[in-house]
């Protein structure tokens, strides 16, 4: 099968700090060599440390910001407002995004109805039809249109705003939807309702989702494949069952074991991930996780681990994996005393 969306070696560095002449003094390596592909009709879950570059990746895919390096293509087509590329407006018909910050992404001066109906009208839908569609969509995300169409964003609760954002993204009828923490502000019953809606739409229209979330239970439920990021890079990816049952990368393991229990009597004694949080301005050498990794050995700080097959399509970037070309070297070298 050919991929619907393909991303190759994507990089985005943000300049930060200023010297006396106002020139940036340092860069944040927000996204540093990210590659993945998604087949039509599948859901890719993206998880990882806060600040590891998930939202930046999504914004790059939408061409809200331009990459420093790398390629993004949909069915082999590349987009961008430069000659030789397909116009970004065309991209936005195929791909829509629900933003993490539901407040900042709605125009405060537009009513809910106007916000949702705006996009389709730009793409040639008549005003009447766009308004009707806005009402239908509100109903579908569990908001009574009679109550909400004429409200303004500040008159909604966080979860209500988030659903308006979902309705707005779906209004364009895109093929690919990027959902950045799109259900995190919802209570669990409404969340269940929205997740069911997303599943239904996926079945009905063959939609493809990129689902960014910190809720690992929800990611497990909704995703076909999962990608784990750490400090601007992909450290592990693969089909959801394999990755959850047999996490290969030490960061993925730490992440999965930090999820609080949902039942009072199984309250865990948490093993907190040790070490300083990573600094994206001066990322650690070698494996970026090595200063916090309990399995790190000398090679981990001097060399970047190759992405290696765990099993089937499941892969991870860690020297501990038997298939890693440098695994022998890893074994032979001394353990680094913490």
């Amino acid at each position: 099968m050919t991929a619907l969306l393909r991303v190759q070696d994507l990089k985005k560095y943000f300049p930060v700090g200023k010297d006396l002449l106002g020139r940036p003094t340092q860069v944040v390596q927000a996204v540093d060599g990210v590659s993945f592909s998604v087949e039509k009709g599948r859901t890719l879950g993206i998880v990882g440390e806060s600040g590891c570059g998930k939202s930046t990746t999504a914004r790059l895919l939408m061409h809200l910001i331009e990459p420093d390096e790398g390629r993004i293509s949909i069915r082999g087509k590349e987009f961008g407002n430069i000659s030789g590329r397909h116009p970004v407006a065309e991209l936005r018909r195929q791909m829509q995004m629900v933003f993490q910050d539901s407040y900042a992404s709605l125009n405060p001066r537009l009513t809910i109805e106007d916000s949702i109906a705006f996009g389709p009208q730009i793409h040639g839908v008549s005003e009447r039809e766009a308004r009707q569609q806005a009402r239908d969509l509100l109903e579908k995300v569990g908001l009574n249109p009679n109550v909400f169409v004429r409200r303004y964003p500040h008159e909604l609760s966080g979860g209500q705003r988030q659903r308006v954002n979902i309705a707005r993204a779906l209004a364009i009828k895109p093929e690919i939807v990027l959902l950045d923490e799109a259900v995190s502000a919802l209570d669990k019953s409404v969340q269940a309702q929205v997740l069911n809606l997303l599943s239904d739409l996926k079945k009905e229209f063959g939609l493809t989702y990129l689902f960014i979330s910190h809720d690992l239970n929800v990611v497990q439920y909704i995703s076909d494949d999962v990608m784990v990021m750490y400090l601007g890079q992909v450290v592990e990816s693969g089909p959801v069952e394999q990755l959850y049952q047999n996490p290969a990368h030490p960061y993925t393991r730490a992440l999965l074991s930090s999820v609080p229990s949902q039942t009072p009597h199984e309250r865990k004694q948490h093993k907190v991930l040790e070490g300083d949080p990573p600094n994206p301005i001066a990322p650690p050498s070698g494996c970026r996780f090595h200063p916090r990794c309990e399995h790190a050995r000398a090679i981990c700080s001097s060399q970047q681990p190759e992405t290696t097959r765990v099993e089937g399509l499941h892969q991870a970037a860690c020297f501990m994996l038997p298939a890693n070309p440098n695994h022998e070297k890893y074994i032979q070298l001394q353990e680094v005393s913490a």
Binding site: D187, K188, A192, N196, V218, Q262
Partner: peptide, 22 residues
């Protein structure tokens, strides 16, 4: 509300039991 919560390892083919109505 508690019944609608997604639990680890849930059957992915099953729709989630949301509370009906609004």
């Amino acid at each position: 509300l508690l019944g609608a919560t997604v639990h680890p390892g849930m059957d992915r083919k099953q729709a989630l039991p949301a509370i009906p109505g609004s």
